[in-house]
Structures are given as C-alpha cells and as structure tokens.
Design a protein around this nucleic acid. Structure first.
Lengths: 153, 153
DNA sequence: ATGCTTGCAAACTCTTTGCACACCA
DNA sequence: TGGTGTGCAAAGAGTTTGCAAGCAT
C-alpha cells in the first residue's frame, strides 16, 4: 500500500499530510493511510457527505479502501470529536460534517439541501437566554438551530 | 422581553373515533380502520415513536395490520401534515412526532433520549432575531432548536 | 512485539416495492 | 363500482460485525 501520493489534482487550500497526521494524533487516533485519506476527503467534500460519498472520494486515491472501513473510521472520528453527524429528517442515510465549530443549518424544503449558517450574535442570544432561563434537570452544552424554509432566487 | 405568542395548551386527551375520522378527512385521507388506529397510537405513544413501536401498539387492537402499512401510512401522514418526522443524529431509524406545533428538542447525550421542550419566550426571541436580521436568499418558515446536553439528577 | 486497524463478506436492520385482494366513498 | 388502501413477502438500501492478516507505535 502506497503512502499518500502527491496530489497534483488537489485543491489549493488543503491541509498537507503532516497537518492531517497532527490532527489525528491530537484526537488520539493512529495515523493510518486510510484515516488520513478519509479525513482529507471529508474536508475536501462540500456540504454534508454520506459515508458512500466519502468512500467514492477516497477510492480515487486508494482503490482498496473498503466501505466498511469508512464507516468505522467516520464513527471513530465522531467519537473523537473530529467530525459531527448532521441531524436530518430527510433521507435514510447518515451525513457527516467536518465543521466541528458550532453552527446552524438551513433546511431547504424545496431542494432538501442542508446549508450551513453561522451567526455569532444569534449564538450569544441563545446562550444568554439559557444562562438566565436555565432548564430544569438538564445541562445544555451545545445548541443548533434548524431553520426550515425555502430559497429565494 | 417581547410578548409571548398565545399558547393554548391542550392536554393529550384521547380523541374518540369520530374526532380521528374528522382529522383524517380534513387532511384529505380516507378513514380506514388502519389509519384511525395508527393515528390513535401515534397520539397515545409518549415521546417520538418509531414505525416499529407504532406497529406494536396497533397490533394490540388489530393483529393483522402489517408493518408495511404502518410505514406507508406514516409517510402519508407526514405528507398530509398530520405528523412530523423528528431529526436525529442518533440511531438508524426514523422517529415520528404527533405534535405538529412548533417546539424544540433536548437531546440527552447520555441516554440518547429526545425530550420535547417548548418555550414561547425563546420562540419570540428567535423570531424577532430573524425579523431584524433577515437571511439572504432564504425565507425561513419554521425553527427548531436542538439542545444537546445531559440530564442532571 | 503488541495491539489497534483493515479488508472482506456475510449478516442485520430498517424501509420500500409489486401485486392480488379488500375496502371506503 | 372505481379507485385507493392493505397484507404479504421479497427485494433494496444502509450499516454493522467477526475474523484473519496488516500496520503503527
């Protein structure tokens, strides 16, 4: 099995292999070829890819990586906090989000798209609300607002 | 603090069969025995039942109802707006929510429970926020805040 | 060297589908 | 009666698992 080859086709602002290894190490995960590739693919793919989509991307570079490994790896990424799973009412399959910073989602009811949305003012508003109106018997640690609606063109 | 929207809260009283027929008719659905039972079970079951759980409940009264019918029926309920599907990052299976009024969800990271949460003040806060800070290219029509955290005993 | 990871394929779970029969409007 | 809805069983999609062999540390 070859190590990560140089990617003449890869996008400009992609983290290099050393940075990916570092991220894995920080998360307490061994830096295997597969994990590096899967992490790279997650960061590369737009939107909220499924395990299947990540696999398709990974296989371009390393055709022997199995879908099962992608599932196991994505699970370990989620467990390690490298990745999140996106909540969705639509579709049967899981979607992953490489953006682990707090953010919200716009759900387009027409196109079924899930669009990332960040707004620090909104975050502050919500945090302040729960700081003053504490929930009973529940300690919140993160919030995500799901905004359903439709795109205006 | 902004005024609360008026919040007429009806307890989950058991609608009789005539009321259920009426709800189905209003939604444009034929009132079959199965649909009446499934709707009744949805309203009866606490939390956010899966198709499987609804089926188990329905079969107590009418043992011949098939799981396939429960799936088809729940889909038609969602399409008709009688029921919602709950978004979840956890678990593989779909959950349904008979409460079609706007509300939020607490996701307990320990027990994986999904707990309903309503707070008109919070709703007003969010609505006000988006009324003043409109989204670009997006017309929101509903909001649901997902609050992850853990129960305190 | 040790123990975590991987690939493979089979098993599993959840959901959908096709079709003949049954039923509501 | 006509057109929908239902039951059944098989198929399909997505995900998990067990184990032998392969790597990272």
């Amino acid at each position: 099995m070859t190590l990560l080859s140089d990617h003449s086709h890869s996008l400009p602002c992609q983290p290099d292999q050393a940075a990916l290894r570092q991220r894995l190490a920080t998360a307490g995960l061994r830096a295997t070829t597969q994990r590096i590739l899967i992490l790279e693919s997650l960061l590369l793919l737009p939107g909220h890819p499924t395990a299947e989509q990540v696999h398709r991307q990974v296989v371009l570079t390393e055709p022997t990586v199995s879908l099962g490994t992608v599932y196991k790896t994505l699970d370990s990424f989620v467990a390690a906090g490298l990745t999140k799973r996106v909540a969705s009412t639509e579709g049967a399959c899981r979607r992953y989000d490489s953006d682990c910073t707090a953010h919200h989602h716009l759900y387009c009811t027409d196109t079924k798209e899930i669009i990332d949305y960040s707004n620090p003012e909104l975050d502050a508003l919500i945090r302040t609300f729960f700081a003053t109106h504490g929930l009973e018997n529940f300690q919140p640690h993160s919030f995500s607002l799901h905004i359903a609606g439709s795109r205006i063109s």
